[in-house]
Amino acid sequence: MLRIRALRKSFGDHVVLDGIDLDVARGEVVCLIGASGSGKSTLLRCIDMLEETDDGDIHLGDLELTDPAIDQNRARARIAMVFQAFNLFPHMTVMQNLTLGPRRVKQVPHREAEARARELLARVGLEAKAYAYPDSLSGGQQQRVALIRAVAMDPELLLLDEVTSALDPLLVTEVLDVIRELAREGRTIVMATHEMDFARECADRIVFLSGGRIIESGPPEQVFTAPRDQRTAQFLARHTARR
């Protein structure tokens, strides 16, 4: 469904993505792992057309996302992205945050959008917060709202950019629980994460990036227990020893 070929991106002289090839099938959950600065976030931002790419193609189904002439707004309605810093709209209530996209982009009637939002809030245990403002919620609650704000758009592809990195450890679990459930529903998810246990448990495939390249890609058991590349082994040794 998502097909990336020879993708390149640099910021000035700094090469961030150095020829990325990646295929993601419908319903697949792909976890991008790698040190900070390895290009995980940039890759996700390129897929969501938030960054202009230097070379290579990205296709979503039959749509070429790297074509500068495409209607980005229509393409983005098929992709949803959740950010590390939640990025909820602080001047809107939770309910307004959840219904803005469906109402304004998908022209869903007000009442229908609210009913759907309520349903999603119930699923993440936040029905009581429908009319609260984001700043009065905890980080974990805010990120759960951000996740269902993305889901409310019924995207074909969900991009999660280190969604638990800004949370303290106790709150990470509640957010991961939501992602786990979304994965079980058969959603297509590409997520950058530092949560190795979660990646091992929930991913269909692990992709290890270093220096803007995909060093290794494979099923979690294989990557975690028998990494083929030295760099993967070193990275995993450092990141699993800490726990």
């Binding site: 950010f83 709209f89 803005l100 304004r104 982009v105 998908k106």
Partner: peptide, 8 residues
């Protein structure tokens, strides 16, 4: 970014 990512 959040607004554009939402499709607005």
């Amino acid at each position: 970014a959040a607004g554009r990512a939402l499709g607005l």
